[in-house]
Design a protein around this nucleic acid. Structure first.
Lengths: 245, 245
DNA sequence: GCTACACGTTGACATGAATCAATCTGGGTA
DNA sequence: TACCCAGATTGATTCATGTCAACGTGTAGC
């Protein structure tokens, strides 16, 4: 059924944070080596999702936060009138579901953008654990406040910056997040469709497309479909000086 | 029980969450009556700020979260190039500074919009306490995830809604927050300037002004300066069906 | 009571991005 | 291989909102 990934899966259902290559990005980052077992004890590991699969659905009972292990995830909220708002993209090592921590139900829908595997942290157990481990609690606060701030950053982007600036900011954000995982920060595959980018950045698809070709003509980037190469990150940064995550 | 830091505080230095009229909105909400003392023990109470005073400054060492006791606060971030982005308005019972919980320094500047008093929760003590009191930790998670979601809500507003819709949403949000404090939800004073509204909603001041007069001409609201009366909340809701906080 | 200045309103005009419409492209599949 | 269809690109036009400019208005300080 599964191939390479199932090797990590099959031995036992228990996750192995100890050996996970993402442990320096994910929750284990905050946990002492010798306490890592306790985190492993609560993690439910490893379902694989195909592109388009829902990891969880808005308004479904909230059970757990997810850490992306491989692949990519987008979250979005759907309003009554059916319009969608993409609220975030999540890459390996990042935690999905923090916005739902307040209620009984998921505040958004999480969808796999490509073949994706995740670790699940059931919320009651996670809360218990953070109570018992102050460093982990601290880290949760950190992650959440970072999420709040990146929301502010996004709001700023949306309210003050042009289409070009928004897109430059997104590309640079993705770039640095790839780099963090020791992958190329200048050449990578966009995990999301143009329409997702457009939706996330509050633009029309056509505008995204036009900006991409404009950047390409200026020699700042090179794109073919979802492949993208940042040829001149300095110019990109010049377009949009700040964006962090 | 005495706090060395406080200079011009009210007669008793100790806050009295027990008797505070906002206890059902603020942190005490999550705390058992008989455990309330522990929360009171860590609160530093009661400096008064005048309009325009800074409660804390972006990049200053992060010390504490604030609960607004009376008055109103706006938070904003200033970018290198000097442009401001208002990130939130806070009314009595609401907690300011959650976005700074991740770092050494405040992520934004908090400014009193009118004469304002606050309670301060020093962060180390607060973290200790939330470790010891699971319900309080839970409540902190709730507050933070709510903040994340209201950021998403704002992003949606900014990227999908017209000037009229944004303003309607803000007015309704303020209305419901006044109501929560058992004040009129239809007639109140806007604590912030038009320019703050404009900045927050990603609009030009002129646009805000125009929308206000348009609403007024349609008989939906009545304004004079910062006084505002919502004459037809149904129409307002019709303009913008959803916004929560 | 007067002045001054920040704040708010109104109008005329410019423009960036949305919208509408047509066409292209590539990957999946029959 | 040929077809199909979602996704992506490109072009023409429209429109909401920004920008610039002028003018009210209220209030704090003298």
């Amino acid at each position: 059924m599964d191939r390479a990934i199932s090797v990590k899966l099959s031995p036992s259902l228990k996750a192995s944070c100890h050996t996970c290559s993402l442990s320096n990005l994910c929750l284990p980052l905050a946990v002492d080596e010798n306490q890592l077992d306790r985190l492993e004890d609560i993690v439910e590991q490893g379902r694989i999702y195909d592109r388009g699969d829902h990891l969880f659905d808005q308004d479904a009972p909230f059970r757990s936060c997810l850490a992306v292990r491989s692949g990519a995830v987008k979250t979005s909220i759907i309003t009554e009138n059916g319009s969608e708002q993409v609220t975030g993209f999540f890459l390996p090592g990042e935690l999905v579901g923090l916005d739902s921590l307040s209620g009984e139900r998921y505040a958004c829908t999480a969808k796999a953008l490509e073949r994706t595997s995740v670790c699940r942290f059931p919320i009651e157990k996670l809360e218990e654990l953070t109570s018992a481990m102050p460093e982990l609690q601290h880290h949760m606060y950190q992650l959440m406040s970072k999420e709040i701030r990146s929301g502010h950053q996004l709001a700023m982007l949306l309210s003050k910056n042009s289409a070009e600036e928004r897109i430059a900011a997104l590309l640079l954000s993705l770039s640095s997040r790839f780099q963090r995982r020791r992958m190329s920060g200048t050449k990578f595959n966009l995990p999301m469709a143009r329409s997702d980018i457009a939706n996330f950045l509050g633009l029309a698809v056509e505008t995204v497309s036009r900006v991409f070709t404009r950047f390409q003509n200026q020699g700042i980037i090179r794109t073919q479909g979802r492949e993208i190469e940042l040829l001149d990150t300095e110019s990109l940064r010049g377009v949009m000086p700040e964006f962090e995550r």
